[in-house]
Amino acid sequence: SPPSPVALPPFFMRGSIIQLADGELKRVEDLKTEDFIQSAEISNELKIDSSTVERIDTGQSPNAVVIQFSVGELKAQVCVEVLVEYPFFVFGQGWSSCCPDRTTQLFELSCAKLCVGDVCVSLTLRSLK
């Protein structure tokens, strides 16, 4: 059977309180690209990667899509299956999903339409020392 798509966790709900790496608290809808970059910079374990959307296909489960990303400098090809409303943070743009209307309806989180070519914020573990 196909793997279940990643369900949408509660912290994408508008108004959710997010703690940045320096301790600052922000609402999820107020996060900026710089917040992710600066948080990763002071993290010993996490590194920001740029992940470019290469393809978006219909998923095997209802309301799911398979998104193919090209990740980091090595352009590693990674596919994830998520629900259409799952938001990704696009550099310089903010929250974006394959079905922004549904994201807004379910989570009251304003979203742009995620498109091929968009560059999303993703994380990599730094090597553990």
């Binding site: 966790p9 509660p10 912290f11 994408f12 959710s16 309180i17 997010i18 703690q19 940045l20 790496a21 608290l25 999820v28 996060l31 917040d35 992710f36 948080s39 993290s43 996490l46 590194k47 990667d49 992940s51 990303f69 990740v71 980091g72 090595l74 590693a76 990674v78 994830v80 990704f88 943070f89 999303c120 914020v121 993703s122 994380l123 990599t124 573990l125 730094r126 090597s127």
Partner: peptide, 19 residues
Amino acid sequence: VPVFPWHSLVPFLAPTQSD
């Protein structure tokens, strides 16, 4: 009120790098 860490919002898309 629950507080979530910033990194819970960001997907891990690449395998661990050795740098």
